[in-house]
């Protein structure tokens, strides 16, 4: 079977797999952003118990492996009465894990905003909450967008692990095609290329666009 015939025959399966991968990536990203914001701000809190929750969360999720966390959520949580479907367990693990890395980016971004911006906002009589929302955070966001681009590619790559709890994503599909055809180079090679296209064709340009948009908005005010 030539490679073109192979592609023709299995393109629909690869496509289905790619759609599941994109869904996992999108839901994982949403969760990671929420977790990153909550935990990032908690870690910056001046109230020590709150800060500790942030620190412990970040250290636990960054200190153990994603695969271990995913298996824990999928196989161990049911013992505590929380049974999740494999699809939910998949993006939950990915989002919670990458969110811990994102929290550090949020912290780094906020702390990179110059001290004088705080002082100016305070001098204008802004409430700390308004100050964060209108002055500090938009600038922090612009600083942290480039590392977030890298993090989203890590997240996309991390979703490949959901195949190991049998979510039918791109990785899972390529494994199945490999089992039924024994054409390993074609099956895994095609999947690798699709991942590359998603990363460099969708995520990287998307994040660039977002950066440009935000930069324009900030300079116009």
């Amino acid at each position: 079977m030539s490679y073109l015939e192979f592609l023709y025959k299995y393109a629909p399966s690869f496509l289905n797999g790619a759609v599941v991968t994109l869904e996992q990536t999108a839901l994982g990203t949403l969760l990671a952003v929420i977790v990153a914001l909550i935990m990032g701000f908690m870690k910056m809190s001046s109230f020590i118990p709150v800060r500790w929750v942030g620190i412990v969360y970040i250290e636990i999720f960054r200190g153990t492996s994603l695969l271990v966390q995913m298996y824990w959520i999928f196989f161990v949580l049911p013992l505590f009465g929380i049974t999740l479907g494999k699809f939910e367990a998949g993006f939950l693990a990915v989002g919670l894990n990458l969110g811990a890395y994102g929290a550090e980016l949020v912290r780094g971004g906020v702390q990179s905003v110059p001290r004088s911006q705080y002082e100016a906002a305070t001098a204008l009589g802004m409430h700390p909450f308004t100050r964060m929302r209108r002055v500090i955070f938009p600038q922090a966001l612009l600083n942290m967008l480039p590392p977030w681009g890298n993090l989203l590619i890590e997240l996309l790559k991390a979703t490949a692990l959901v195949a190991l709890i049998s979510v039918a994503d791109l990785m899972f599909v390529s494994k199945q095609i490999n089992m039924s055809t024994f054409l390993s180079a074609q099956a895994f090679g095609t999947a690798l290329i699709i991942y590359y296209i998603i990363a460099r064709g969708i995520i990287t340009p998307g994040m660039r666009g977002l950066e440009c948009k935000l930069a324009k908005k900030l300079s116009i005010g």
Binding site: S184, A185, Y195
Partner: peptide, 12 residues
């Protein structure tokens, strides 16, 4: 290599 998942590379 940096843009594609390590698990898939291991299988490959």
């Amino acid at each position: 290599i940096r843009s594609t998942p390590l698990v898939l590379q291991i299988f490959f």
